[in-house]
Nucleic acid binder design. Structure first.
Lengths: 188, 188
DNA sequence: CGCGTAATTGAAAAGTATCAACACTGGTGG
DNA sequence: CCACCAGTGTTGATACTTTTCAATTACGCG
């Protein structure tokens, strides 16, 4: 599913209006740009303003596993902030992506000083945990046809937006299997 | 893997010593007891003091998907607290489990008033997100043999502690497949 | 001892990956 | 303007893996 978080996006933009725009920079990534790279140090927290990005891990088997597609308001980099570790995933722009960037230091200051912001982040991470648990549970207990149908429901014009390879990587199958499933869907 | 969080457990026990033991109750669950039930309202946050529990979701296919095994210091109920939704999983004791229970209201008060506690929970949730992402990525991109080997590395005496059915449900395979893999492991 | 639950195993069926060949597209340079 | 190329998508045949089903055994406990 393409995850979004409008509430947080609004709050961030409100903070900017209140004169914190020097702390919260707006930047742009072009198609294919990697905003965050796996196994590197992360110095900022990012919030997608608009566009679409994929969050994926590269395994030692050479396969990519797509964790999630990020849309408006989705946040990344915050987990690395709290765990003090290198990034565990790569964030790559699938379309041009406009995003806000907050330096780690400033992000941590906000967390400590702005209780509303603090609560938004708590709630955001809780939602991530819940969502991820439900998705992976569904994925492991249902067959390809169901998983694909579910993804299509939640992403309008899936095939127009996302390459087959990425869809396959998201579902944890090969492109060949994806094509077979798509074909058998039509005939039924 | 059996997840633990000693740091949080210590902090909770310190809070109790400081006279909050009426807020943080110690309770016991027997083998098979369900501490939290899926799709019910959750009124408390729980911290495992000792013992082993499984966290699982029941899917409409009738299958169980085991999210994680919880050991010392692991927390559950906090996600429901922040998202204000029914529980998305069931927590069931695999051994006798001693745990601390904090009423939702008191938990939220602590979050707002105790910045150390607040940060522990932020860090805990970030760790959960990171851990879950890494686990599911590994699981989807590796074969049964690798996944099983990885689980055995992280859980000493796996087969003695956890039933084959639970291991299979954790790995997302059938017991038949688990047995076949175990057998072929020996012969090599 | 007898009961229910868990574990084991073989055989057949179903699902998925692998491999290889070929089509389609947009961009580049001669 | 066309030939070429790289990347993406399509498809069939085959090999491999996992599930399903069913029968049997082992184990713990009243």
């Amino acid at each position: 599913m393409i995850r979004v978080n409008i509430e947080l996006l609004k709050y961030i933009e409100q903070l900017r209006v209140q004169g914190k725009s020097e702390l919260i920079r707006e930047e742009i990534a072009l198609v294919g740009d990697k905003i965050v790279k796996e196994k590197t140090k992360v110095f900022s927290v990012f919030i997608v303003k608009n566009g679409l990005a994929k969050c994926y891990l590269k395994e030692d088997t050479g396969e990519d596993f797509i964790q999630e597609f990020f849309g408006e308001g989705e946040v990344f980099g915050e987990v690395e902030c709290f765990t003090n570790r290198f990034s565990f995933c790569t964030i790559e722009a699938l379309t041009a992506v406009t995003y806000y960037r907050i330096a780690k230091r400033d992000f941590m200051k906000l967390i400590q000083s702005d209780i509303t912001f603090n609560n938004l982040i708590l709630s955001l991470m809780a939602t991530k945990i819940r969502y991820t648990a439900l998705r992976h549970s569904y994925n492991q207990t249902h067959d390809v046809e169901h998983n694909l149908a579910r993804l299509r429901e939640s992403v309008p014009d899936l095939l127009g937006k996302i390459s087959k390879k990425d869809i396959a990587n998201y579902l944890g199958i090969t492109v060949r299997s994806l094509n077979r499933t798509l074909k058998s869907e039509k005939s039924t």
